[in-house]
Amino acid sequence: MKIIQTPVRFYPFIGGVENYVHYLSKELVKLGHEVTVVCANEPDSEHNESVNDISVKRLSYTGKIANTNVTPGLPFTLLREDFDLIHTHIPTPWSADWSSIISKIRGKPLIVTYHNDIIGEGFAGSIANFYNSTCLKSILKQADKIIITQPNYMNSSSHLKDYRDKIEVIPNGVDIERFKPLSEHRAENTIFFLSLLDEFHKYKGLDYLLKALMLVKKEIPDVKLLVGGKGVLLDHYKAQADSMGLGDNIEFCGFIPDERIVEFYSTCNVFVLPSISSLQEGFGIVALEAMACKTPVISTEIVGVADDVKSSNSGIIVEPKDFPALADAIIQILKDGAIQKKMGEHGRKLVSKKYTWKGVAEMMEKVYNEVL
């Protein structure tokens, strides 16, 4: 098959959707398919290149609307391409809209992975509501298949209720050959959190992790939180940490290069993903990456892998925004090396069995074959 993927950005940009498209496309190529990614040129890279045998066409952009790069050349590029189907992604207006339009013009199937809802506050919320009632509805109606990464999203998102007959649940995956423990040694009393630090990712819950850390510090004075990621709110979080008396307990690591991310997962005692919005948190690939590195995970009920974390005893799941419970979970794991080891082993076993990108790509291939 000749497959077009239209994420708003692509590797080396690091983000949930970007990782999803990168790893899925890499495995689809291994299965014998031709994959072309059409995206915005951010960060600035070669306009046309091959990444892991994936053809990547990067387009100039004129600015951003709601964290989505506006690429004027997208419709013309898609019209020129030879393809069997388009696979696009929500929540990225513009790239998803034009993918829908071009697939209709060309009479080719449209696959949509619905990662999470498009929402906003104030004026942005009004724009989001207008978009959801018009363009989004049109995209979902046209889509031949809608992919969601966790079954709960069918009920938590009001936009999906009319399309149950064409929804398929295919989880995210993790590269278990790349994400694996580097050694048995772990830094003592160390927590790791990873996210973009901007307004669009406040739902990852760092504010609540900082509140929990204040409680943890009373029990474990030398506790250390490593915060990976950069963004416009970096200085805000640094100031917040200082005002809470946590300056000595937090290290803001900034952007973590791809080649070092496994090191961070492998040397901490616990990875924490305290997401607070079921509308915005689609799955939480970072939780899978941590488990693949035999690191216990603490997360919230709304994260896609939460049920498996609980049933496999790979970590602890708490309610969103419940920072006292979050603190108790962190203390419980940090104080017990045996629990850390047992949860780590269970997590690695879980992802190896259920969440490989090879398995995800094979499930996706079946969907593609069905619509063709």
Rank of each mutant, 00 (worst) to 15 (best):
K2Q: 05
I3T: 05
I4S: 03
I4E: 01
T6P: 06
P7L: 13
V8R: 14
F10I: 11
P12R: 10
P12L: 09
G16V: 11
K30V: 00
L31P: 05
G32W: 00
G32V: 01
A40H: 14
A40M: 13
P43T: 13
P43D: 12
D44T: 10
H47G: 00
N48I: 14
S50W: 06
V51N: 06
N52S: 11
N52H: 10
S55K: 14
K57V: 14
S60T: 03
Y61R: 04
I65Y: 14
N69E: 05
G73S: 15
F76N: 01
L79A: 12
E81H: 08
D82N: 14
L85Y: 03
T88W: 03
P93L: 11
A96I: 02
D97E: 08
W98Y: 13
S100W: 02
I102E: 03
S103W: 07
P109M: 09
L110Y: 08
I111L: 15
Y114N: 10
H115N: 13
N116V: 00
N116Y: 08
D117P: 09
F123V: 12
F123S: 01
A128K: 08
N129K: 15
Y131I: 01
S133D: 10
C135T: 02
L140T: 05
K141E: 15
D144H: 09
I146D: 06
I147R: 09
I147A: 06
T149Y: 01
N152P: 00
S156Y: 12
S158A: 13
D162G: 02
R164H: 12
D165F: 08
K166L: 06
I167W: 12
R178F: 14
L182N: 09
L182P: 04
S183H: 04
S183I: 04
E184K: 15
H185M: 00
R186C: 00
A187I: 08
A187H: 04
T190I: 05
T190R: 12
I191F: 00
L194C: 01
L194A: 09
L196K: 15
G205L: 11
A212S: 14
K217Q: 12
K217L: 07
K218V: 07
K224M: 11
L225N: 05
G228T: 10
G228Y: 10
G229K: 10
G229N: 08
D235Y: 04
Y237A: 04
A239K: 15
I250G: 02
P257V: 08
P257Q: 10
P257K: 13
D258R: 14
E259I: 13
R260N: 14
R260F: 12
T267H: 13
T267N: 13
C268Q: 08
V272N: 09
Q280T: 05
G282K: 06
V286W: 05
A292S: 15
K294P: 00
V297I: 11
T300A: 13
I302D: 06
A306M: 07
A306R: 04
D307M: 07
K310Y: 02
S314R: 04
S314F: 07
G315Y: 07
I317S: 07
V318E: 01
V318A: 02
K321C: 08
D328A: 12
I333N: 03
L334P: 00
K335G: 13
K335P: 01
I339E: 06
Q340H: 00
G344P: 01
H346K: 14
H346Y: 10
V351A: 13
K354R: 14
W357Y: 13
G359H: 10
M364E: 07
V367C: 06
Y368I: 05
Y368C: 04
Y368T: 04
N369D: 03
E370K: 14
L372T: 10
